[in-house]
Amino acid sequence: MSPNLIAEHDKILHWPDSIDMDSGHFIWLQFASNSGRQYRALLEDYHNEMAMLYIRDELSDKHIASYVLSFTPTPPPDFGSRIPQVESAYVDVDYQLGGVSTAAYKAVIEHYGAVISDTHQTEAGMLLWLFGITKDNSIEITLLTVVDNELSFKTSETGARYPYQGDIQAMQAVASIIWGNPDNVELTDPLHLGFRPTWDDRSNLVLAAMKKDD
């Protein structure tokens, strides 16, 4: 369950052949990246342990990204009964670094109320949590511990949670205790992360992002 770093974690998905909007298993989501690029996403959710998110670029109508969501961990009461974990992601090479994933994560948070980090995270995943989601003041990121697939808030000795909201530097300061790299995967450029992942296992931690109340 940890956000341990791995080298590869992409899975190419294909747009579903049949879309029955009347079934209640498909929902259209509209969102834009920070650059203003518009996207149309199809969420396929049968309300079991898995869901898929397919994204098209509105301008080209090209299927440019896909995400697999799982709902296996039991979240704390604050997060409701069913919170997605992004288990796998694929973004077309022409659209990488364009803010698609950050916009997609925000759309998932808007729909479900929260999202938790992947079991394993690539450099791109760490960058998304550090410099993408964290910038949004309407979203709060916190740490959760994992015990027997049950999630609970990680707290300090005084019982306080660890919230990060619109404060990248505060999250960077503790990043080395969040992200582990026990397999010693070579990083492309550790300097652009602003920290070095610890070589220790962080299998008892995940990150969670939830929508703040207005």
Rank of each mutant, 00 (worst) to 15 (best):
R196Q: 14
D200N: 10
G80H: 04
I133S: 05
P84H: 04
E150F: 07
A209N: 03
S203W: 02
E157D: 14
T198N: 05
A104M: 11
D201R: 06
S138I: 01
Q96G: 00
Y164S: 01
L193F: 04
Y105S: 09
L43E: 04
E140L: 11
F31V: 01
P182E: 06
S88E: 11
Y90G: 09
A173C: 01
Y162S: 07
K212G: 07
Q38G: 02
R202D: 00
P190E: 01
N4R: 07
L13A: 08
F79Q: 12
E140T: 15
Q172C: 03
T122N: 00
Q30K: 14
L193R: 02
D189A: 03
E110A: 14
S156W: 03
H192Q: 05
L191Y: 07
T142D: 13
T155R: 15
I19E: 05
K62E: 14
Q165L: 08
H192N: 12
A175E: 03
Y67W: 09
I19P: 01
D10A: 10
R202A: 04
Q121D: 06
L53W: 00
K135E: 13
R56M: 12
Y164T: 04
E8K: 09
W28L: 10
A124L: 03
A51D: 02
Q121N: 14
T72G: 04
H14F: 11
S156C: 06
A7F: 03
Y67S: 02
S33W: 03
V115W: 00
H25K: 10
I109S: 03
V108S: 04
S60P: 07
I64R: 05
Q165R: 14
V206P: 02
H25F: 06
A51R: 05
N137M: 10
K211R: 15
P3Y: 01
W28M: 02
E58H: 09
Y112G: 01
K62Q: 13
L128E: 00
W129D: 00
N4E: 09
H120T: 11
S101L: 14
M210K: 13
S203K: 10
V115A: 06
Y164H: 06
S18V: 14
K62V: 13
A107P: 02
A89S: 14
H9N: 15
K211A: 06
D213Q: 15
T142K: 14
Q165N: 11
G180R: 07
W15C: 04
N34C: 10
I27T: 15
D118F: 03
I6C: 11
